[in-house]
Design a binder for these strands. Structure first.
Length: 491
RNA sequence: CGGGGCGUAGCGUAGCCCGGUUAUCGCGCCACAUUUGGGAUGUGGAGGUCGCAAGUUCGAAUCUUGCCGCCCCGACCA
């Protein structure tokens, strides 16, 4: 036997790591907390990135690129912002190395100390708003709808592959607007883009909501988020969109002249999703045999495995495959014909299951005689015999079906794991028995939120958008509340 | 930064308590042959600063001290 994966029920964390390492998504690196994204993992990220990029452009955004380094003084201009990020910044202090005069190898040249230290961006609001100041004078310069694809660094104490690494890849959108309403609309528009992407492309059902004060982005007026549920019952924040008000405009003195010739500060939003989404994908859909990928973002959608004895049969299969490969390509299906003779069919079956390839086609001499192939779907493990006539079309339909089925499965799981709790006792029992989201009343104070976190490790994931308004009593303090919020233990 | 675990070939490991031939086994790798419908088999072969450093000793993977690294759990966070 080849690669063994730890069972989910044995050790969920280990299962997660096994999948990522053994499916070839990523590796640990020589740098603590940083990972290597391997070609298969990066192909997955590219598919996600390309689709998001398309959606951003369809909603009027353009890409740009801002520096990796941020002058230290910039970070401290917005009070809440610096407070939020100061603890986890990598700092560049010198710009040159030298040979150790004492023979100790290469050392930092003490003479090459930077006048002003540079921060490796943990996020780019500051450098961007410093730049926007030079771009904006009039309402005619607005809105600015810019996104950048970049890496950022946050010096986390504890890291996990994809979910939290010291360096990660993401996109960050930074928009500037003439009115508050426009900035709020933008914030919500992007939240919808994220939710649509998660649900339709990643087959990942999400709850849209607003963060409580203590969970919101440092420097934001409001943070909107999409929250997803993982198979172990823990929640994962999968994307955030912030309404920044005039906080950064004020910090960087970005004013514009409006139609009435009055001077005002610019209104802003910022929003991002990261490679963390890959972690979400793994934990939402995969099983004890490996990854399960939604067809729409799978690097390989269909793999074809030939089964043959001798060159003659192989040649016959090659010819047949060549014919229907063209049909697949015409339909835009990403198909791979694995006729590598180093591995036997059984090995390939297991390998592509591990890698989460949605559909596998096996074809042998016997099949060709009957004008069929064996089609196996990754999500349900079902195998059926399918006619070679119209095969590409049949499989294209199947791919859609798989996309839908994965979503439905995740959605059912999520729906079964949203429960109401009306007493503290119920709340604790639900958390410890099945986890998931717990809908409960909360008195609206940060102190209560903190206390609940201390007692149970559960945090408020969000206040759902369009939340039902209903009178109730706080689960902990019994104080009056006008709506339920979603609690969960989270990553 | 606290608690736990680990470091021996590309990967996973035995040996360590109780120091003593050529460091064990499996997977993987290379060659050849037979194979190919669920992780093939045989034969032959290559591959090791036993995490690093110092010490004890005639002799250290094994004992002592120090250091480094990684993983898991927690606090912090996307």
């Amino acid at each position: 036997m080849g690669k063994e994966i730890t069972k989910r029920e044995t050790d969920y964390s280990q299962w997660y790591n096994d999948i990522i390492l053994k499916a070839g998504l990523a590796d640990y690196s020589a740098v603590r907390g940083c990972m290597v994204i391997k070609p298969y993992g990066f192909a997955l990220w590219e598919n996600m990135r390309d689709q998001l990029d398309k959606m951003f452009k369809e909603t009027g955004h353009q890409n740009a690129y801002f520096p990796l380094f941020i002058p230290k003084s910039f970070l401290s201009k917005e009070a809440a912002h610096v407070e939020g990020f100061a603890k986890e910044c990598a700092v560049v202090t010198h710009y040159r190395l030298m040979n150790d005069p004492d023979g100790g190898g290469i050392v930092v040249d003490p003479d090459a100390k930077l006048e002003e230290e540079l921060i490796v961006r943990p996020t780019s609001e500051t450098i961007i708003w410093n730049t926007y100041k030079t771009w904006i004078q009039s309402y005619r310069d607005l809105p600015i709808l810019v996104n950048q694809w970049a890496n950022v660094v946050r010096w986390e104490m504890r890291t996990r592959l994809f979910l939290r690494t010291t360096e990660f890849l993401w996109q960050e959108g930074h928009t500037a607007h003439a009115t508050s309403q426009e900035a709020i609309d933008e914030t919500k528009l992007i939240l919808d883009v994220y939710a649509t992407f998660a649900e339709e492309w990643m087959s990942l059902p999400v709850v849209k909501g607003v963060k409580s004060i203590s969970e919101r982005f440092a420097g934001a007026v409001d943070t909107y988020c999409i929250e997803a549920l993982m198979q172990d019952g823990k929640a994962l924040q999968s994307g955030t969109s912030h309404y920044l008000g005039q906080n950064f405009a004020k910090a960087f003195d970005v004013q514009f002249t409006d139609k009435e010739n009055k001077l005002d500060y610019v209104w802003a939003s910022s929003w991002g999703v990261s490679t963390r989404l890959i972690g979400a994908l793994v934990m939402a859909h995969s099983d004890d045999d490996g990854l399960v990928l939604p067809p729409k973002i799978a690097p390989i959608q269909v793999v074809i495995v030939p089964i043959y004895k001798g060159d003659e049969q192989k040649k016959m299969i090659d010819e047949k495959v060549k014919m229907f490969m063209e049909d697949f390509k015409a339909l835009g299906v990403k198909v791979k014909y694995d006729d590598n003779d180093n591995n036997r069919p059984g090995w390939k079956f297991a390998e592509y299951e591990l890698k989460g390839v949605p559909v596998r086609i096996a074809i042998g001499a016997r099949d060709i005689q009957n004008n069929v192939v064996e089609v196996a779907r990754r999500d349900t493990k079902e195998k059926t015999s399918v006619s070679i006539d119209g095969l590409a079309n049949t499989v294209a339909v199947l791919l859609n079906d798989i996309q839908q089925n994965i979503y439905t499965k995740a959605k059912n799981f999520r729906d079964e794991h949203i429960a109401k709790a009306d007493t503290w006792d119920e709340f604790e029992k639900l958390l410890d028995s099945k986890g998931g989201f717990i809908s409960a009343h909360w008195d609206g104070t940060a102190e209560t939120e903190e206390k609940i976190k201390e007692l149970t490790k559960a945090t408020i994931r969000c206040i759902p958008l369009n939340n039902l308004q209903e009178e109730g009593k706080c689960i902990l303090t019994g104080k009056p509340s006008k709506e339920r919020v979603l609690f969960a233990r989270a990553y």
